[in-house]
Amino acid sequence: MSSQNLIKMANEIARYFATEPDQALAVNGIRQHIKSFWTPGMRRDLGAWQEKHPDAVLHPLVLAALKEPEGAT
Rank of each mutant, 00 (worst) to 15 (best):
V57W: 03
E51A: 12
N11G: 08
P21Y: 11
N11R: 12
Q50I: 09
T39K: 13
S36H: 11
A64W: 03
N28F: 00
N5T: 12
K52P: 00
L46N: 08
P21V: 12
D22K: 15
P40Y: 15
S2A: 05
L63W: 03
D45A: 14
S3W: 00
G47A: 14
I34C: 10
I30D: 02
P60D: 10
A65R: 01
L46Y: 06
P40E: 13
L6I: 05
W38T: 06
H33I: 07
W38Y: 07
L58P: 00
L46M: 07
R44M: 10
A14G: 03
N5V: 11
M9P: 00
G71I: 02
W38I: 10
S2E: 15
H53M: 06
W49D: 01
S36V: 01
K52L: 11
R44Y: 09
A24T: 01
P40K: 14
K67N: 02
A56V: 07
I30Y: 03
K52Q: 13
R44N: 10
E70Y: 05
G29C: 08
W38D: 04
V62L: 10
V57Q: 15
A64V: 07
Q23T: 09
T73A: 14
N11T: 14
I34K: 03
Y16C: 06
H33W: 06
L46H: 07
L58H: 02
I34E: 07
S2W: 01
P40M: 15
I34S: 02
L63V: 10
L6P: 11
S2F: 01
L6D: 06
W38Q: 06
H59D: 15
I13F: 02
D45L: 07
S2R: 14
Q4D: 14
H59W: 14
K8Q: 13
E70P: 00
D45V: 02
L63Y: 04
E68C: 00
G41P: 03
G71C: 07
S36R: 12
F37I: 03
R43N: 09
V27S: 01
M1K: 10
L61S: 02
M1C: 11
K8E: 12
D55F: 09
P54Q: 03
L61V: 07
V27T: 08
R15T: 10
K8P: 00
Y16N: 09
Q50M: 09
L6A: 05
N11V: 13
P60V: 03
Q23E: 14
H59P: 07
M1F: 05
P40G: 10
D55E: 13
H59E: 15
M9D: 12
M42W: 08
Q32G: 08
F37M: 07
Q32C: 09
Q23W: 01
L58K: 03
I30L: 06
P40H: 08
H53A: 08
N28G: 12
Q23I: 14
W49G: 01
L6T: 05
I34N: 00
E70Q: 11
A48Q: 11
I34Q: 14
V62W: 05
T19K: 13
R15V: 07
L61Y: 08
